[in-house]
Design a protein around this nucleic acid. Sequence first.
DNA 1: TGGGGTCTGTGTGCCGCATCACAGTCCCGG
DNA 2: CCGGGACTGTGATGCGGCACACAGACCCCA
Lengths: 261, 261
Amino acid sequence: MSERIWYLKRCGLFERLTPVQLARLESRARFRNFERNEAIYLPGDQADGVLLLSTGRVRICDFTSGGKQAILAFIDPGELFGELALVDASPREERAEAVVASTVVLVPGDAFRELLDAVPGLSLGITRLFGLRRRRIERRLRSLLFRSNRERLVSLLLDLADQYGKPNSAGVVIDIRLSHQDLAGIIGSTRESVTIMLGELQREGLIRIARRTIVLTNLQRLCDGVDVDPERTRGLLDGAFKPGASAPNHGQNSAPTGRKM
Amino acid sequence: MSERIWYLKRCGLFERLTPVQLARLESRARFRNFERNEAIYLPGDQADGVLLLSTGRVRICDFTSGGKQAILAFIDPGELFGELALVDASPREERAEAVVASTVVLVPGDAFRELLDAVPGLSLGITRLFGLRRRRIERRLRSLLFRSNRERLVSLLLDLADQYGKPNSAGVVIDIRLSHQDLAGIIGSTRESVTIMLGELQREGLIRIARRTIVLTNLQRLCDGVDVDPERTRGLLDGAFKPGASAPNHGQNSAPTGRKM
DNA sequence: TGGGGTCTGTGTGCCGCATCACAGTCCCGG
DNA sequence: CCGGGACTGTGATGCGGCACACAGACCCCA
């Protein structure tokens, strides 16, 4: 029980709730476990609420009639998903599935709306969440529109480094295991092409692949390949900013990631 | 003066403001005219507020280093744009420019935030706006990921029919003039390819092009080409649904539009 | 009512990348 | 510790769609 409340508090949006509100929320939410590859919701399902991942990892995706999967996002513990249901009651357009065994909290729509009224700032938090995710998607759209396959892959690697990267002596380690198939699903390419391109990048000394994890060994040159917003690499390209020359350093919102709510 | 207030009221989000609030807003907003093709803001500009289009038309776009323009959205009178500035103070990532001579209202960030606190429901309205636009972008992303050039074009035509279409005896007239270059910028293709494909579609009897406006003469067959969410075509495909036979039909949410918040 | 600028139509190469087919490797669970 | 299933590497082949080039049509406005 109290463990469940702990899961709720874990979500940045809920940390300001009073104990009473938390308890009430907990009583109205449903907890459910999903095993690896199990579907959480499907396109066409009536959307009845908002979901919060407490443990595991979730993939938001979409299958074409040809059977290829497009990956729209990954969700990590503490993050909300399926939140577009707050906008209106139209059915889900995508599929959410557990990448690994996961436990998910379902918050019914009316319980959530009740909270929106009661908790000052929550509404603003949701708006920001929407805004941040939208910005991310718009970036991806732009990157998809007129870039070559290879540029999209490099761009993706930089994004992943941003979200999951652990700097280290050899470079930035991307601390999440994705198959080439997954990578292809994100950039809209094929498994084979991804394999080839990763090989090329490694041969060129830009990355290193060891035991199925990718290390970015030369961020600078990777960025050069894509005409990339240097802000994307945040702290990673440590002190290397030239004050006058390069980017306007908008990353002043200095939180290490920018997501996390 | 009172004409200016009228412009403000035109925006659905503001219609609930009291006269006092409206007047205050009007005093803090700046009105400005832009001529055809003039830039309203540029990538890198410090975002200082939200913009409202009162007359004209605005294009949100982005230029690749190769000089190709990606079109992210069109804005019609009464619509808000540049609203991602509400999320944080990071600079703009895209370019907004007037398609035709336009007049724009600039609402400073603090004035807007003040309203957000004062006007119940406004915050919710913004959240919904974000959500709706995000949903639209996610659809576009999906359509970009694994569809052929032609499918993307057809899908775009259906979307346009959805937004700007006027049904008529011959079919659905798309009541907005876009050059082939523009269409290409939206679907991530080239001007020449669009020309060719439109020719094909016309030869196949799916559309008709007369004096640079496009008429969709056979919605049903157009939809067949794309594995399209039938909901997208709203009332346009009037009663023609065959209950048992056709597509997976998850569009059981029979609300005629789904947009218009 | 022209005339210049923008938009549309069409052809020809060529290259990126999807597809198919199959071999080799990893890795996890029993 | 071993076997089977998932993942990775690589080649052959074909096609979609882009780049470039130019001709004709349209349209606005001077």
